[in-house]
Design a binder for these strands. Structure first.
Lengths: 207, 207, 207, 207
DNA sequence: TATGAATGAGTGTTCATTCAT
DNA sequence: GATGAATGAACACTCATTCAT
């Protein structure tokens, strides 16, 4: 009776379904940002979306499914935002700076999204499927970054450090940004981005 | 009512009570590490402690109290572990390295504790009272680190960076360690610690 | 969340919701009358209403809300019954008699309702919010009666007594009726009403 | 193992036991008056008595037992206070006035006791044994008063009214006193007592 | 598609009562 | 006699999920 959830692709869904799903995801982000993951019940989300709670289950077979879609959506949006910024960089150093500064600016522009995914990720430590997926997502980002470091090292652009440790630290430092910006709303974002990029540039550069 | 919670000090509680509280705190850490904060109900915690759920409420008036005690306990234990290691450092650089390496080794030795407090802190984002306390705790650590950086800069030991950004990043990178060690159990901890310390040493050092 | 409780008026609720609320209120009255307020748990009330306990919370956000609605419902019903009877009285003496006799007859016809509100009022002595409301309700009835006495005195219809004491006593005597009728089911209600009215008529009359 | 609760007489109990029971009863009255019957748990009562909760059960096999003892104690104390005042009256009218005025003054002097028994009586609507006993207690007072009215009528001192209705009303009006004095602490007690006695004197007097 | 009433399993918490000490 | 740690049953309340409409 329900639309075949998460089938092979996305092309399957009707337009109206796609729209509803988007609306629900948006309402979920808004809700989590406002009242926190723990209190973000379907009733609350539905109220913000202007729909009935039952409709959420109709479009997302399980709560997990919805949360997974939220993360997917935000990651997509973020990746898109970052890639446009990263295009121009010709060096690995530049790419790293682009990534970090891009991320920080994205945080400043989409605080709700970041709050949402960080809360979901933290809570999903148990929701089996979501966890698996979240880890996978994270792992791929991590691996990409690791590879980038490794290549930069091979080309002599970076010093000889453990790529994995560096990747983990860069991501951790970036992910700490939303909370910091939330706690200190009057932070100079551009300055913050520059400082963070400087930090890691010094940490990776040769000699 | 229960034994008067957290009166003047700790000396007030009977031996048996102290023991039970410790046991419950330990079971809570274990439970959260195993199944996550969201599923760590009193029933689950009690089962692991081999007691009845009601007994938890008997010793901790509110759930919040228990979680607060968990954080307090872990923080104490960590601080103790770190302080013993930090003693000898004569320079700010050395202190920073001591802090980072100490923390990483502590993570390796007490993985469950770290998982527990990070999950509690993440979940407490909304539990009013707990949040206040958690933030305060975090803020003080952050401020201490910030001050350390500022002093190091004034003495010319560190370059001219934004102390706040550096402090946030150091803590974020350290806090990412438990998850990494959990995900890759065969990581060489000593090596990881050294790499992380190197990273920030390069990031802060003059010229 | 539940259907937005007690918004502007009553017109907001759907028919089915209104019906359920009425059914639950009726079951609550029945339950309290049968087993007493202290044992009137949601499980008991739900059993009598033939619904699941959760549905009560679904329609009444808090237990207090339900109890408040019970009192409101009974008071409304009583006021309606009394007002129709009190219409014709042209003197204060007649009004007093009308009030007393009307109340006694109402008691005889709705014993459960009276038992319910008296038990709720007694128990609410500590449930902060409910207490405030209950007292207010009571106070207004008391004040009205007091005013009536004062006016009757000014017009020379009543002797010179303390209106407050008389009002308190009239209400107390009336409120004792349900218990008496319950204890002695074969009491002649009309006779009881007449005797009670006579009592206070003699107590208030001039000379 | 426990002292044989409520055996045939009272002579059985040791001195220390008697003292403890009295202490517990006093603490119960104090507790109910302070925080209400619903919140008057054994832990609360024990705290006020400076003993452990288990000791209450040791001396009173069931909660009901304790509450029954409270009512018994207060009734005894009240009866004693009233009888000393009623001695001198030579007429039934005088006796009635003595009863009413005595009761009102007792209320003013022992507010906690009155609050306690009224709350217990209200709550005990269900506690089987306590209810039975409470009703019996009440019934005997009622019957005594009824008899007094009947005798007064036979002697031509009182008019021809229904003794039962009058008795119920007198008791109801008296029992409303504590709440009124609590609500209006600056009431002139002597005046209140006089007004109430006047009220019923007019209601019962011949011609 | 969409509603929202309804359920049932789960939560933290309370408390009279028990019992080893 | 007395303690207070411990239990277990009960409570109000929450919420994802179901389903008749």
């Amino acid at each position: 009776m329900q639309p075949e959830n998460e089938s092979s692709g996305q092309g399957r869904r009707s337009f109206i379904e796609q729209a509803r799903r988007g609306q629900i995801v948006a309402a979920t982000i808004e809700t989590i940002a406002e009242i926190g993951y723990a209190k973000a019940s379907f009733v609350q989300i539905a109220r913000r979306a202007g729909i009935s709670p039952g409709l959420i289950t109709y479009h997302f077979a399980k709560r997990e499914e919805l949360m997974k879609q939220v993360m997917l959506t935000v990651h997509d949006s973020m990746e898109q935002a970052l890639s446009s910024r990263a295009e121009g960089s010709e060096s690995y150093r530049g790419a790293l700076r682009g990534l970090i500064e891009g991320f920080v600016h994205y945080c400043a522009e989409h605080p709700a999204e970041l709050v949402a995914i960080s809360q979901i990720a933290a809570a999903a430590r148990d929701a089996e499927a979501a966890r698996a997926w979240s880890e996978e997502q994270n792992a791929s980002t991590l691996t990409e970054l690791e590879d980038m470091f490794r290549e930069g090292q091979e080309l002599g652009e970076f010093r000889d450090f453990a790529p994995r440790v560096m990747a983990v630290s860069v991501i951790a430092a970036m992910e700490a940004t939303p909370a910091e910006l939330w706690a200190r709303p009057d932070t100079d974002v551009t300055q913050y981005a520059k400082e963070l990029a400087d930090l890691f540039e010094l940490a990776v550069r040769r000699a």
